[in-house]
């Protein structure tokens, strides 16, 4: 464990908690893509299948449980909570995310570290996490609505990406057999898609700031 990865895990967790708190506090999820949140929940459920079989550390197990619970809590809130689900942009959040799930699963069957149940699902979760932000990106391009995508959420999500890349660079130079190409390449794709999301987020934020200028 190095400082970059620890900080990356913590900023990743904070980004999820910030979003959950924002939705719960404002009882609104307008501008949030339910499909992206569903994909994130699937990512954690598929990746942490080893939760009960491989014990790595207390930290690792506790964080896995927290990631699963918080991501499922967001999906539950957006699908079940009466007040919240009324504010969901159902007609705008129409990206066919099932295609992303299918494509990532087929790709994981082709490219993985070992052809075992857990390894294929692990690779699937890595690929899916990379593309999971696409429905949110599409929704943001359509709606330009950043009401619930707070700056903190976007900041912590970006910090998580940047810190994980620093973590991989650090591990590459300090560990003899560092070969996590699946995670690294997929992580770079994820960061590129995040950068695209950030670009549209910044544009929307700027436009909204202009719109809200004092009359």
């Amino acid at each position: 464990m190095n400082a970059f990865r620890l900080a990356g895990d913590i900023t990743h967790l904070i980004s999820i908690l910030v979003l959950l708190l924002k939705i719960y506090a404002t009882k609104s999820c307008s501008g949030i893509s339910l499909k992206t949140q569903e994909l994130y929940a699937v990512v954690f459920l598929a990746r942490y299948l080893d939760l009960f079989t491989d014990f790595i550390s207390v930290y690792n197990s506790v964080m896995k449980v927290v990631f699963i619970l918080s991501s499922v809590a967001i999906v539950w809130c957006m699908r079940r909570h009466r007040a919240v689900k009324r504010s969901y942009d159902k007609e705008l959040d129409t990206f066919r995310h099932y295609y992303l799930v299918g494509a990532c699963f087929v790709f994981a069957l082709l490219v993985h570290e070992k052809f075992t149940f857990q390894e294929v699902f692990w690779a699937f979760s890595i690929y899916l996490e990379a593309v999971a932000i696409i429905p949110q990106l599409v929704l943001l391009q359509r709606s330009g609505n950043v009401d619930n995508l707070t700056g903190q959420y976007v900041f912590f999500l970006g910090a998580y990406r940047a810190l994980y890349i620093l973590n991989w660079i650090y591990r590459y130079f300090t560990e003899a057999k560092f070969s996590r190409w699946i995670a690294c390449i997929s992580g770079l794709v994820q960061t590129a898609l995040y950068a695209d999301f950030f670009y549209y987020y910044f544009l929307s934020w700027k436009n909204n700031a202009k719109l809200n200028l004092p009359a």
Binding site: R5, R47, D50, D54, I56, E113, K114, W122, N167, R180
Partner: peptide
């Protein structure tokens, strides 16, 4: 035996 790539990262 070889546990394969132990995924220690979250």
């Amino acid at each position: 035996g070889d546990r394969g790539q132990d995924h220690d990262e979250l």
